[in-house]
Design a protein around this nucleic acid. Structure first.
Lengths: 191, 191
DNA sequence: CCTGTCACTTGACACCGTGTCAATTGACAT
DNA sequence: ATGTCAATTGACACGGTGTCAAGTGACAGG
């Protein structure tokens, strides 16, 4: 199916670094079809990018990965498992994310799409925070909502980008630091 | 001087919200001159934006604000003062920052300019971390460099944006949370 | 009073990337 | 043979940046 070939082509290009060099013409060439044929399947660049993220989520089985964090028994374990699952997913979608993020400013639809995806992440954060609250291990300093905001911000793609891409941290270092930071700022009595 | 009028116009427009709607023509109109006259003073949009940030730093006396944090005696005080100074500066430059950030992806020069400005912030972070290290109050978990990376990331404009703009936190809430987060993740024995 | 010069204006234009439109081709099915 | 469907080619509009050339008006010095 041509549609799939386009999605694969987009993915391949976005994955390989220089996010913003990826134009519709490039994707078409990579897929071995004409630029106009791309428009036959995806009305706008934004929609193509969104479709690519959804395609990735499917191919990479995000759902299965998050299942692990959902099955954790204690809140603390759940928090840790969630950070690990999401944190390790970031590098795989980073090319995509960067391209989508770059359109946020100019493209209404791209912004909405990215916001949707991030709300899903926020759900995950909230679930982890609620698990802590249920166990009574959430720090008394913050409400569930504030704690969720904080965790969500900590785990943003931008923060990953800054630490791993710009500062040269290893992925493991990133994960460990985020876990520790989350624990210290969200879990009660954990010096 | 026309140059100043242009800078003031750019500032006024950027400050008032919708960063990405600000085109060269808009700035010219706001300054009461022709679009081409702007190019007489600033060769490119990126250079105009950069000049505007420098102009803002001058007008807003960033240097004086940071002096306070430099004169703190203990490392912990210095950390706190720095977070307060920088954290309270962010909302004043946010319009600018957003416009510059939006060009990061497309414009080489804008990216370099923004990166420069952020390196300056990083210097401030590093100074605070070194003050902690000197006092022996830096957590043993992290090297000076790692601690600097972490603090710098915590205090990014993007994080401020997400918490204050997107999540609706108050400025005071943001400052307090950042101070606490920094303390918990950088200062030794502070549960 | 003439002549420069300097800041600015007007208007036209090239470039780039996105998205649109119309006419055409080639394969496959009925 | 006919229809249909995916894809092709080529042209074009739009928006925003940046360039270029010619013109205008004010002010200064001889």
């Amino acid at each position: 199916m041509t549609r799939t070939r386009i999605l694969e082509a987009a993915w391949r290009l976005l994955e390989s670094g220089q996010a913003e060099g990826v134009r519709m013409a490039d994707i078409a060439r990579e897929a071995g079809i004409s630029r106009q044929a791309v428009y036959l399947h995806f009305p706008t660049r934004a929609e193509l990018l969104v479709a690519t993220t959804l395609y990735l989520d499917e191919v990479k089985h995000v759902d299965k990965r998050l299942a692990a964090s959902r099955s954790a028994t204690t809140g603390v374990e759940r928090l840790s498992a969630f950070i690990e699952a999401w944190g390790n997913y970031i590098p795989e979608i980073y090319g995509m994310a960067k391209a989508l993020l770059a359109m946020e400013n100019t493209d209404e639809e791209a912004a909405a799409a990215w916001s949707d995806r991030m709300q899903a992440v926020r759900q995950g954060c909230e679930a982890a925070v609620r698990a802590l609250a249920r166990d009574g291990t959430l720090t008394p300093d913050r409400s569930v909502e504030e704690a969720t905001d904080l965790l969500w911000t900590l785990l943003s793609v931008r923060n990953w980008e800054q630490l791993v891409q710009d500062c040269g941290w290893s992925q493991g270092q990133y994960i460990e630091t985020m876990k520790e930071l989350a624990r210290r700022s969200l879990v009660r009595d954990s010096g």
